[in-house]
């Protein structure tokens, strides 16, 4: 459907960014819809039984179409393809009914996927997460140059795939921080 309003990426462009940073690649993702899910009190079982995977503490689960990662002791974030799930909240309310509080989060975040082996050298310049020791699927909130971000380790260190979700309004500053850091270790 051709919309009346044209979307822009968090960086203010019409198409997402793809950029090489020395040995690594940075891929901006605008094709993922996000929503937070928090089971209502006493309804945790219903939420756990639904088709959407519930992540363990500080972990993420990959699936199709639903993936998810842990946010807080009583809330997790759900990811789904944007093209088919733009109105992700409606989809999830269809699944959970009133068993969970669901909040659309798609555009609250800018997502950068960093790809390539040896990412730990770059991450060491950005945040205090020990990406070498972290297990695959590890998901945590962290701070990059004063900016709160979610970090998900998508692949073992030998392959190197890390997702960063930063506040959408700070997309430019976050990209700048990553680019500067990469310049010192690339």
């Amino acid at each position: 459907m051709d919309k009346l309003l044209k979307p822009l990426t968090a960086l203010g462009a019409s198409a997402p960014l793809r950029k090489s940073l020395g040995p690594w690649e940075l891929v901006e993702r605008v094709d993922v819809a996000l929503a937070s899910v928090a089971p209502r009190r006493g309804r945790e079982g219903e939420v756990a039984r639904a088709d959407v995977p519930v992540p363990a503490v500080a972990a993420s689960v990959q699936g199709d179409p639903w993936s998810s990662f842990w946010l807080t002791p009583d809330m997790f974030m759900v990811e789904a393809p944007f093209a088919s799930h733009e109105d992700i909240r409606a989809h999830l309310l269809g699944i959970y009914g009133d068993a969970a509080s669901v909040t659309e989060q798609t555009d609250a975040w800018v997502r950068f996927d960093l790809l390539g082996p040896g990412l730990e050298r770059l991450m060491a310049k950005l945040c205090n997460v020990d990406v070498v020791a972290a297990p695959e699927g590890y998901a945590t909130r962290t701070v990059i140059e004063h900016m709160g971000c979610y970090l998900i380790k998508r692949a073992p260190s030998s392959e190197g795939a890390v997702t960063l979700y930063g506040a959408r309004s700070m997309a430019g500053s976050l990209l700048h921080a990553i680019t500067l850091a990469a310049g010192t270790v690339a």
Binding site: W70, L71, T72, P73, T140, R141, T142, V143, G148
Partner: peptide, 16 residues
């Protein structure tokens, strides 16, 4: 000066 129970908020973490 010694043992103290205090509140800390994991603001840049899991909000606990």
């Amino acid at each position: 000066a010694g043992e103290h129970r205090e509140l800390w908020y994991h603001e840049q973490g899991d909000r606990s």
